[in-house]
Amino acid sequence: MNHDERHDRFMERLERGEKIEATDWMPDEYRRLLLKLIHMHAVSEIMGAFPEKEWVPKAPTLKRKLAIMAKVQDEMGHGQLLLRVAEDLAAPLGKTREDLIDDLIEGRVKFHNVFHMGSPTWADAGVIGWLVDGAAIINQAALLDTSYGPYARVLKRICAEESFHMQHGENIILALAGGTKEQKRMLQEAVNRWWEPLIFFFGPVEVTPAAQRMIDYKIRTKTNEELRQQFFNKYIPRIRSLGLTIPDPDLRCDEKEGKWIFTEPDWKKFGEIVRFNRGPKSQERIGLRRFAHEEQRWVREALVRSREKQPV
């Protein structure tokens, strides 16, 4: 079978709604698009733990501390599950887990813009759970019917846990929204900080060639803008119901077109933050990740060597 025939047969499988497995033949382009997406997803989960872990020692009550610790643990767990999926895709390209992590600490793989930002107050911890996780769930739920089986299976588990994150975040912000004047002000300021990064999070309005290829390959089925509009539909009424103001004076719903009109974020600024790790917290957090990876290298080596010495 020549390459074109294989490719046709592969596309027919996708058309029939079949899932692709790690051991199946797949076009190189499909593998690379998937790897890029899942690698970024994986390292974003890991880097997503950082803005929140900063609040573990400072959480206001023991219950809040336990809950946010559980969340940080989940994010790392999701990172591990996703790295497993990425690793199997990367293996034929000669890349390993170490390489995937090296890519992160050397700045060769991007992670989501939201995790480059600071989380200066407890309200930020709440808003991350409420709105950032809310946005992430919309993204991830839209990927549940992805054509790549191993990714679909891992996403199912991740989405189940993300729904806890959503409740957790809502619980924090509901407490603040019903609290003192000072707490309400803190919440409003956090929403002000997160709104623009959240709009950027969903990506460019136009369908880029790479995004179109992902849709062709049924890796994803929805466009960035469809997902962003979903987010608006779900969250704008809720944000407003709490008496909070959304920091976009031009935000309105176009009833005729059935969509939200919004002020576009500073694409260039956030693009550079993500591409060059130039956000307010990028270097600090990557530095922590690098420290963990390098300082614990001897442990990983020792574990591997100790097994080599045992009769297996």
């Binding site: 989940d74 767990g77 591990q80 599950l81 887990r97 588990r157 846990e161 591997v304 097994r307």
Partner: peptide, 23 residues
Amino acid sequence: VGSVVAPSPDMALVTARENFLRR
């Protein structure tokens, strides 16, 4: 339920518990 990477079977069991049985 999925897979893990680990340096030994013992560590694989621990990692599996941490990854798949947090709840």
